[in-house]
Simulated assay, not measured.
Amino acid sequence: MNLPNKLTILRVILIPFFVVFMLFDITGAADKWIALVIFCVASLTDMLDGKIARKYNLVTNFGKFMDPLADKLLVCTALICLTSMNRLNVIVVLVIIAREFIISGFRLVASDNGIVIAASYWGKFKTVSQMALIIVLIMDLGGVWNVAGTVLTWVALILTVVSLIDYIAKNKQVLTQGGM
C-alpha cells in the first residue's frame, strides 16, 4: 500500500477519535482543542495524499474511490457533531449531505459509462469553505467569531449549491447516457 492510500486510511481512522473528543467530556475544556487538532490533521491528509499521488504517479483505484469517501466521511461527521451541539442548523447540514450523495451517485453513473468526473474548482472552494466553517465552529470562541461562523455558513452553503449545479451542468451527458 502506497503513502497516499495510507494517509487516506489514517483520515478514516481519525474520525472516531474526533467524534469522541467532540461529543464526550474526556478532558474537559481541552476536548474541543484536541478535536480541532484531529480535524486539522485529518484535513491536511486530504491535501497531502492527492499531491503525493499526483506528483509521484501513485494514483490507484483504491485512492480514487476512498479519498473522496474519506473526505465526505470526515466533513459530514463533523457537521453532524456540530449540529448535535447546536452550533449549526440542521437544514444547512442536510443540504450539504444531500449534495454529497447526489454527486457521489452522479459519479457512480458516470463511472459505469466510462466517464471520469474530475473535481472542479467550485468543488475545491466548497471543501475549503466547509473545512474553515468547521474549524471556526469547533473553536466556539464567541464574539466576532460568531459572525465569522455565520458568514462561513452562508459561504459554504452557497458554494455547496453552486458546485452541485456546476457538476451537473458540465456533465449533463451522464444523465442522458446513463439510462437515468
Rank of each mutant, 00 (worst) to 15 (best):
K172P: 09
M1E: 12
V59M: 09
A98Y: 13
W154Y: 15
I80K: 01
F106W: 13
F17N: 03
Q177A: 10
L157F: 13
L36S: 00
V151E: 13
D49G: 04
T60R: 07
V155R: 13
L108Q: 14
I168K: 07
V95E: 14
W145L: 13
V144K: 15
N57G: 12
M131S: 07
V59L: 09
T160E: 11
V20Q: 05
D46W: 01
L152N: 12
V20K: 04
G178I: 10
M1Q: 11
L141C: 11
N89Y: 12
N113M: 07
L133A: 10
I91A: 15
I15S: 01
K51R: 14
A148K: 11
V20Y: 02
T153H: 12
L36Q: 05
K51N: 12
I115Q: 12
V161W: 14
F106L: 14
P4V: 06
M47W: 12
I115T: 12
I13K: 01
D25M: 00
G178M: 11
D166R: 05
Y167A: 09
Q173M: 14
N86A: 08
P16L: 00
V162M: 08
T8W: 02
M66C: 07
D112A: 13
T153Q: 14
P16S: 02
K172F: 15
A42W: 05
K51Q: 13
V136L: 06
G114K: 13
A42Q: 02
G123F: 01
G28N: 00
V174F: 11
V128L: 14
L23Q: 06
L152K: 13
F106S: 12
P16R: 00
F17Y: 04
L108K: 15
I165G: 04
W33C: 05
N113Q: 10
T77Q: 01
K126W: 04
I9G: 05
K51S: 08
A42G: 02
V144W: 15
L175V: 11
F101N: 10
I115M: 14
M131Y: 07
I138A: 02
N171W: 08
V128I: 15
K172R: 15
N5S: 09
I135P: 09
D71P: 01
L69D: 00
M131K: 06
V109I: 15
N86V: 06
L79D: 00
